[in-house]
């Protein structure tokens, strides 16, 4: 099974956040970038599937040279090839356009993504990419197994403790739910070795895309700021004993 794992580099601590002047993107500074945690689960699941069924794992990301760091993490976890599309995807729609174009060149049997990125928090890119590729998809998947040579069976969450087992013909795209496999620690020595691996770099032009194709459209960002605290939220201050005493009094009132 040829598996492509789509993974995103996300900022650690974010500083200096602002809206770009045209209102189409957020600008921020971050000391370091790491692999989006939801995508790490997709990577771990790919490793397990390869162990069970054989094949190849390709890790794919979009971004500048600094995002290559997460591809080394992917390689250390078990990716056989690492690919970076050298582009800036400013919103989920743009990311889905770039990923779909890159995935067409990679001809995977199975594409794995996470369910959400910690910066955009949109849960959008995976399913949108599947639509652009016109392949079957499933969101929030907690188990994957092969079902014959050309299909998989997945268990997907529907919310409220409900799930469904779904049979998807391959090729397919699956958005992996957190917890599908335990996250494995990457020893530094293995990460050092992984750095020897050379990422394949693709440009937008290689994929037949232009900047205009992936420019945000249909909206503008007016502002970004810490949310206003709800009027009812009252902070009980003081030393722990005092704060707790105040809390118990409030709880007694609420009855």
């Amino acid at each position: 099974m040829k598996i492509v794992v789509c993974c995103k580099a996300v900022p650690g601590a974010v500083t200096d956040v602002a809206v770009e002047t045209r209102g189409d993107a957020l600008r921020f500074r971050s000391q370091f970038q790491s692999m989006n945690e939801c995508d790490e689960y997709a990577m771990e699941e790919a490793v397990v599937l390869k162990r069970l069924y054989g094949g190849e794992i390709i890790a794919l990301t979009i971004g500048g040279v600094s995002t290559q760091e997460i591809l080394y993490t992917a390689a250390a976890k078990g990716a056989d090839r690492i690919v970076r599309v050298d582009a800036l995807a400013q919103d989920p729609r743009a990311a889905s356009i770039v990923l779909a174009a890159a995935l067409k060149t990679l001809a995977a049997d199975l594409v794995l993504t996470g369910t959400q990125s910690r910066d955009s928090l949109s849960s959008f890119v995976g399913v949108a990419t599947a639509q652009r590729l016109d392949v079957p998809f499933a969101f929030a998947v907690t188990a994957i197994e092969k079902d014959g040579d050309d299909a998989i069976k997945v268990r997907k969450e529907l919310g409220g403790g409900r799930s469904a087992d779904v049979r998807l013909p391959l090729p397919a795209l699956v958005c992996v739910q957190t917890g599908i496999q335990p996250l494995n620690y990457v020893p530094p020595a293995r990460l050092m070795r992984a750095r020897q691996q050379r990422p394949q770099s693709l440009s937008l032009a290689d994929l037949g895309l232009t900047l205009a194709d992936i420019a945000p459209r249909g909206y503008r960002i007016a502002s970004v700021a810490p949310p206003a605290r709800a009027a009812g939220a009252q902070i009980l201050s003081g030393p722990p004993a005092e704060a707790v005493r105040a809390l118990l009094a409030k709880m007694a009132e609420a009855g």
Partner: peptide, 14 residues
């Protein structure tokens, strides 16, 4: 919410 919910973006559709 964006960035783990630490920030909220206000977005206006065309």
């Amino acid at each position: 919410p964006v960035y783990d919910g630490a920030l909220h973006a206000r977005v206006i559709f065309d």
